[in-house]
């Protein structure tokens, strides 16, 4: 390699490093890490395709394939199902953090980040923000598709927005759990398979696609105390999609108080897994 023989000789003489640790650097580090994930979403089109097309597919499949078969007393299946599809989609959307952290470890870029004077939480904040962005896009697409096929909000705009916010925050908190697991498992393939193995039963043995009451007793009990059910129930209530006949059918506390259950779930996940993930990040190294 030849050295450019110019008078201007770019060199080591970069600026001397200053590493003030303050709220502003924490914020700036988080933003830089978020931007990195945004660029990735832009450059890897399958993420965005998966994020937009799959929810459309689910909305259409469930609305047209099952709507004629599954009978919800007092309600249209399309209205009943929508909160379930929303919940399933955002829950699966939170798995990107798991595989992305494992991939970063595998690629060695975690080692680069860990030797920089940056905030130890920044990479995780950037990653979970990335999931939040993906899920927000999915939500917008699903709401649009839902409205087209005939889903309607029967409450107020404010309540509907609260429902959307609850779905997104639950998924955001779950992203931290999966980011932690991704760093423990260290293999993007394994963490993907494991999260599918756990999340499929969680979303299907719930009230997302069928009323929990219609399930055989052991599955019904599982479904009633399944956090995904509480999430679906919250969204359904906030959208005004719970048929009057279905009210009070289940006497499980989690279904009676779904919003509170979900809020508790979000807080518990964040309180445990934010510090745990940051601690884990501060100790891991590639290979």
């Amino acid at each position: 390699m030849t050295v450019p023989a110019t008078a201007h000789r770019p060199s080591l003489d970069g600026p001397a490093s200053a590493a003030p640790s303050s709220l502003s650097t924490w914020f700036s580090d988080g933003w830089v890490a978020t931007k990195r994930n945004m660029i990735k979403i832009k450059r890897v089109p399958d993420i965005l395709v998966f994020t937009t097309l799959q929810p459309i597919m689910f909305v259409l499949l469930f609305s047209y394939v099952y709507a004629g078969v599954i009978d919800i007393p007092g309600s249209d299946y399309k209205e009943f199902i929508m909160a379930g599809i929303f919940a399933q989609t955002v829950v699966f959307g939170s798995t990107y953090s798991g595989s992305a952290m494992a991939q970063d470890l595998k690629d060695g870029i975690i080692d680069r980040f860990r030797t920089l004077p940056m905030s130890p939480s920044a990479v995780l904040i950037g990653r979970t923000n990335g999931d939040l962005f993906i899920n927000t896009v999915s939500m917008v697409v699903m709401i649009g598709t839902g409205l087209v096929v005939g889903w309607r909000v029967r409450s107020s705009l404010l309540e509907a927005l609260a429902g959307v916010a609850l779905l997104l925050f639950f998924a955001y908190a779950l992203s931290w759990v999966l980011a932690f697991l991704g760093m423990c498992v260290r293999s993007p393939e394994v963490i993907n398979n494991v999260s599918f193995l756990v999340l499929f039963p969680l979303t299907f043995i719930s009230n997302a696609f069928v009323p929990a009451e219609s399930l055989p007793t052991p599955l019904r009990i599982f479904a009633e105390y399944n956090p995904v059910s509480a999430l679906v129930q919250s969204a359904r209530e906030l959208f005004g999609n719970v048929p009057p006949e279905a009210r009070g059918v289940s006497d499980a506390w989690t279904i009676q108080n779904p919003i509170l259950t979900v809020l508790i779930g979000i807080v518990v996940m964040l309180v445990i897994f934010v510090p745990l993930s940051i601690r884990k990040f501060s100790r891991i190294s590639t290979r």
Partner: peptide
């Protein structure tokens, strides 16, 4: 390091700019 710790999805420029920002330039 022995294994180039660069972000595959970022351009060469973006990689270096990111590192610069994380050094708080």
């Amino acid at each position: 390091g022995q294994y180039a710790a660069v972000d595959e999805n970022l351009t060469g420029f973006e990689n270096l700019d990111m590192v610069g920002r994380l050094y708080h330039l």
